[in-house]
Structures are given as structure tokens and as C-alpha cells.
Design a protein around this nucleic acid. Structure first.
Length: 270
DNA sequence: CTAAGGACCTGTCGGC
DNA sequence: TGCCGACAGGTCCTTA
């Protein structure tokens, strides 16, 4: 579920509870996530102080003295801070128990998430090939334009490709393209520079707005404090086939692109 | 090299 | 009420 705004919301929610805290115990109830949770995770983490809580793309990075814990929420994951005494539920797979009495709990029904230990995260293969952050300096319309030349993929798949730009999942790809007035199936390489500029601005705008609302909760996303995100009420096209376009009232259309549901206004988006 | 599809999981919803 | 298929916020990996 979580795209960049949800991961960033999670980061902001948990960081104040984690920074400076010592890990006192690790409980792994279900090690079978996207990749097996390392059996020696407790040995690595116990006694270490969490120095920083960062984010790269949709990965959360807990900086410890001796390395970095990389967390990914997959499709259905969430992280919450709870009292260490809180009984665990069916899908509460991993707990990091802190010396202060709180607990960072990973919940993930579908288990597409990941818990990875590594000593040099910037060189980790999962992170090293990633494109720029959409809210960072290196990302703009000129970058999108240059990267997309001679590319036949659809613009939607292009902006969802983490080698191009990170953090944009199915919800925000649909929303950004609507706001930019670009048809999602248009070939990325055949879009003029000015329209890439509009798209880059729309991506930035929609992600920032979503972060400000605490992310989008469709079903089960909760931030670090256990509260849902409120951006769902701002969605213009995602999940709304047949409903009138908010700009021109033409019914929103749904198609499949790269095996993902795609929503757009056939009149506003060209 | 790119593109397309399968794979990994569980839960929920709509239709019959 | 029960069963079955389709679908869901991600993304790596294999195959063509």
C-alpha cells in the first residue's frame, strides 16, 4: 500500500520515539517476509542506539552504530509505536523493543515487506540503482524529458519505474497524470518538454499535499501513531471509474496498464 | 538493452 | 449463507 507519502508519514511518526533509543530486545514471530528476516537480527541490534530514522524511496532506514536496518512496507505493511506490553495480533511479525518501554511493531498481512540488515546501505543493490527523490533537487521536468527520449513505455509506467524516479506508486501516478492533463497510456518519449514540466510539478504537488494529509488510507494504512491518512478525500480519479471528472464531468475511465488499474478522464487527459 | 509476465501473500468484495 | 474468482497501495526476477 504505502507509497512515498505514507512511508514519509510513517517516518515522521516513529522518528521521535526511536531517535536516541537503545534496542533492548527483538522479537521475530514470522521471519518469512519478502526475504527471510535474518536469524541473527537480535544479536546485531540489541544494545545499539538508533541514531537516525531516514528514508530513501519507499525504504525506511534506521541508522544504528554498527549498520543500518532497512525496512520496506510492501503492499500492506505498517509500522507503529506501541507500549512493549501490547499483545500481538495475527500479522504483527516483528517487534523492536526499546529500553524506554516502547516498541516498534511491524504489521504486514501480505508479507511483501522486508527487514534487511546491512552495513553499507548506500552500496546495497536494492538502493544503489534508484532514481532521484521526487521532492529533491535532482528531479524536475527537464530531467523527466531527457530520461524519456526514445522510450516507448507509457508515461504512467515510466514515472512508476524506480530507476527513473522513486516513490510514485499506483495512486499518485494516476493522480499526478490527471493533474498534469496527460493521458496515462501516452508514450513517454513522445511528450513535449513543457508537458514534462507540468508533470514534474504535478508529482511534486500531489506528493506534498498527500504528506500534509498524513498519506492515503484506502483500507488499512496507519501512520506511526496509529492514525489513518486523510488524503483519500482529495483523490480525483483513483478508484473512481464511472464517476464524473471533477473538472469536466466526463465519466472517469478505467483501463489496465502494466497489470495495474489505471484511471483517467478521457477528455481532460490527452 | 527493453518489455512483458509471473511470483510472492492474505484479505475483501461482488456475483451467483 | 457459501463458494469462487478478481482484485488490492510493491517490486524483484525470469523469460522472450
Amino acid at each position: 500500500m504505502p507509497e512515498l507519502p505514507e512511508v514519509e508519514t510513517t517516518r515522521r511518526g516513529i522518528a521521535p520515539h526511536l531517535t536516541g533509543q537503545v534496542v533492548s530486545r527483538v522479537v521475530v514471530r514470522q521471519p518469512r517476509l519478502r526475504w527471510p528476516v535474518p536469524a541473527d537480527l537480535g544479536d546485531r541490534l540489541c544494545g545499539q542506539t538508533i541514531q537516525a530514522v531516514g528514508r530513501r524511496a519507499k525504504y525506511l532506514l534506521l541508522g544504528l552504530g554498527n549498520g543500518t536496518l532497512i525496512l520496506h512496507l510492501g503492499m500492506s505493511g505498517s509500522l507503529r509505536i506501541v507500549p512493549a506490553s501490547t499483545p500481538s495480533g495475527k500479522h504483527d511479525h516483528v517487534d523492536l523493543i526499546l529500553a524506554g518501554g516502547e516498541c516498534l511493531r511491524l504489521t504486514d498481512p501480505r508479507r511483501f515487506g522486508a527487514v534487511i540488515w546491512c552495513e553499507a546501505p548506500e552500496r546495497h543493490t536494492l538502493l544503489s540503482g534508484l532514481g532521484p527523490e521526487p521532492l529533491g533537487e535532482a528531479f524536475d521536468g527537464g530531467y523527466l524529458f531527457e530520461r524519456s527520449r526514445n522510450k516507448g513505455v507509457t508515461i504512467k509506467q515510466f514515472i512508476m519505474d524506480s530507476k527513473v524516479v522513486v516513490g510514485i506508486g499506483n495512486i499518485y501516478a494516476n493522480e499526478a497524470l490527471f493533474r498534469a492533463g496527460i493521458h496515462p497510456a501516452r508514450a513517454a518519449g513522445r511528450i513535449a518538454r513543457a508537458r514534462h514540466e507540468r508533470l514534474a510539478a504535478a508529482i511534486r504537488c500531489v506528493l506534498e499535499a498527500a504528506i500534509a494529509q498524513g498519506g492515503t488510507t484506502l483500507r488499512d494504512f496507519v501512520g506511526g501513531d496509529g492514525r489513518p491518512g486523510y488524503f483519500a478525500q482529495e483523490l480525483q480519479v483513483y478508484g473512481k471509474p464511472g464517476e464524473p471528472c471533477p473538472r469536466c464531468a466526463t465519466p472517469i475511465r478505467q483501463i489496465q496498464l502494466g497489470q495495474r488499474s489505471t484511471y483517467f478522464c478521457p477528455r481532460c487527459q490527452t
